[in-house]
Design a binder for these strands. Structure first.
Lengths: 218, 218
DNA sequence: ATGCAATTTATTGTATACAATCTGGTTGAC
DNA sequence: GTCAACCAGATTGTATACAATAAATTGCAT
């Protein structure tokens, strides 16, 4: 349970950054935020430090902290890194995954299919996340798992966007199937490649999305 | 330049944790530290939060922050993760590395050789670090580079220990040579494997070291 | 003597007060 | 008119004061 106000405020601020209430370059004014949350500057400052340490904001000493949304280049880099890390998880999982976990993956995929049929985007996303988290865990390396979860969390808003593209969900499902096949066959390189591609495609799709948004803006 | 006291204190505390002045489970008493550094609790608390966010300490709400040295299992997990990430950097670098960077790698290796001949452990370590940092950078993905640097920094003290094993430095050098060959040949998988093995061996050696230390303790 | 409970003490979390420094604009010299 | 120095206001960084909560100690009953 979160009992520290600073932590609750940090969560709230992260939400609002993701939601776009605060956008890139905005200064996070301590006094303003303090009034906004009805607390003193102290817990605000602690919360801001947490944002900084998780990369959502940047601190210029004696000048303040500014939200720092990643630009297109950094986003692509983050997607590439995520793809590589998921590939690693897959390669390790291929030789370590349990039968139960394989069942969980297949179940998640089945529910994803159902969600597509029902046009339930939230349900799809929830099961999709479950699929990926399971693979992280089955890497058998909890340190790596946590790193993967961290990055996943950071990319969440963007990953989600990309799913809105027409036909992306069915394609994504096909990729999931291929991943399970490789894992069940205990083929490390195949699993790694399948996962790497799966996430890399997400990055590409996202890139296309960005490009089309930019076109639309002109 | 570091002008904020909190940041300087954070650096100092990290040093002392690495040096073993504070060991696993120790509570980092705010008042004690405040007196020790001659400041108030405020900058101490900021510094402690930095330690927590970098994983060197753990915070139990309303109870304090405690240093948290990784145990043998977590250390092996960290080494494995480092090995995988370096492998990834190598694979990406194989198709992206510049001629200049290749020259830097070869120069670093030459200086490593010289340091071995001169029995200069510090020099060896410095050039070794340069070697690895160059590969991170040549992954062409600065986000990945930063992640690699972060982990590297975290493992630094342990990596260093392992070099003290007899014959390890010459073996390590041979591995470096193989890595450069793979990179120059632009062979992604070969480079990835060479780097993965190189770091994985470090983990193994470190494990042996731990085991022998444990034997000696009995 | 031991186990439990109430109180006391110590420590963290938050609020406020003060110091240091950065920003922006104004003034003055050239 | 341009540029630099300086002053006023605002904002961050640090110190201290207060509140809330967890640990420790004492006292009591068994």
């Amino acid at each position: 349970m979160e009992t520290r106000r600073a932590d609750m405020i940090a969560d709230a601020l992260e939400e609002r950054v993701f939601a776009g209430d605060f956008t890139d370059g905005d200064r996070l004014d301590e006094i303003r935020l303090a009034k906004m949350f009805g607390v003193s500057r102290t817990p605000i400052r602690e919360a801001l430090q947490r944002l900084v340490s998780s990369g959502l904001a940047e601190q210029l000493p004696r000048r303040g902290v500014f939200v720092r949304q990643p630009g297109p280049v950094e986003l692509m880099e983050m997607f590439e890194t995520m793809a590589e890390i998921e590939g690693v998880c897959g390669r390790l999982a291929a030789s370590r995954i349990s039968e139960d976990a394989l069942a969980v993956l297949e179940e998640a995929n089945a529910r994803c299919q159902a969600a597509i049929a029902a046009d339930d985007a939230d349900g799809y996303y929830r099961e999709n996340e479950r699929f990926h988290n399971t693979i992280y865990a089955q890497s058998g390396n909890s340190f790596l798992e946590h790193e993967a979860l961290r990055l996943h969390r950071r990319l969440k808003p963007y990953r989600r966007l990309q799913l809105r593209l027409r036909g992306r969900m069915v394609q994504s499902m096909a990729e999931h199937e291929a991943i399970v096949v490789a894992l069940r066959a205990a083929e490390p390189e195949q699993a790694a490649t399948a996962l790497r591609l799966h996430v890399a495609v997400q990055g590409e799709k996202f890139h296309h999305l960005l490009a089309s948004l930019r076109m639309a803006a002109q």
